[in-house]
């Protein structure tokens, strides 16, 4: 993916540049808001990472100008202080996702992947299929190798998030946000517990593990 990274803090910028480069992404960097706006309008990028506090023009203003000018490129906002109001402001201004600094790089990487995927219009599907699993979104039915698996509502939503991002890692934080609507860390094993129940149901009868877990990164369902 081609990613625009707008961040004025040199340490953070280099850290993100290096990480994204290792994942074979093409990164364009900007150290202030005006440069960021310029690149966003002139370069063809898949995802924009926008720091909220920047010299010359702050991230929120850049975002408003982009959205006002009809630019729909997915935007991930970075903020130094995790205030609820800031998140609401950012989302209202048209940000697609929000990440509080400091963050683990794997968290940023997973979110960038998800945003890049969201840009392609696959989310209107009523049927998802990945890793030997079939999911009927309207009938709320899940089959593994043709056999129906009975899931609780939360388990269904967890699996849906994984299948929508099949082949990519989905982090614990992303699941908390999307399945439970929690933009805070409840410091309890909510995701782990429900994930282990989902996994047990999917794997019933000694079948191979449908969900891959990488500690410190997240969960993934194989895309094939």
């Amino acid at each position: 993916m081609r990613i625009l990274l707008a961040e004025d803090d040199t340490d953070t910028r280099q850290f993100v540049e290096r990480g994204l480069g290792e994942l074979s992404h093409d990164v364009i960097s900007a150290a202030n808001g005006e440069d960021a706006l310029h690149y966003a309008l002139t370069e063809d990028v898949d995802v924009i990472i926008l720091d909220r506090m920047m010299p010359l023009l702050d991230g929120l203003s850049v975002l408003k100008r982009l959205r006002g000018g009809g630019v729909t490129t997915p935007v991930l906002m970075l903020t130094a202080v995790g205030r609820i109001e800031d998140r609401v402001d950012g989302l209202e201004a048209g940000a697609d996702d929000y990440l509080i600094k400091p963050f683990a790089f794997s968290e940023l990487a997973a979110r960038i992947q998800a945003l890049g995927r969201r840009a392609s219009p696959a989310s209107v599907a009523t049927r998802l299929s990945a890793g030997g699993l079939e999911m009927e979104l309207l009938g709320r039915e899940v089959r593994r190798e043709g056999k129906v698996v009975q899931l609780q509502p939360r388990e269904f939503r967890l699996l849906e998030e994984l299948m929508r991002n099949a082949g990519e890692f989905v982090t614990r934080t992303m699941l908390l946000e999307r399945v439970w609507g929690f933009h805070f860390d409840p410091q309890t094993k909510i995701v782990e517990t429900h994930m282990s129940r989902l996994r047990a149901k999917l794997n019933e009868g000694g079948r191979a593990d449908a969900i891959e877990t990488v500690r410190g990164v997240g969960y993934r369902i194989r895309s094939t």
Partner: peptide, 8 residues
């Protein structure tokens, strides 16, 4: 929340 926390 009860539904979420009961398994825990």
């Amino acid at each position: 929340l009860g539904e979420t926390l009961a398994p825990l």
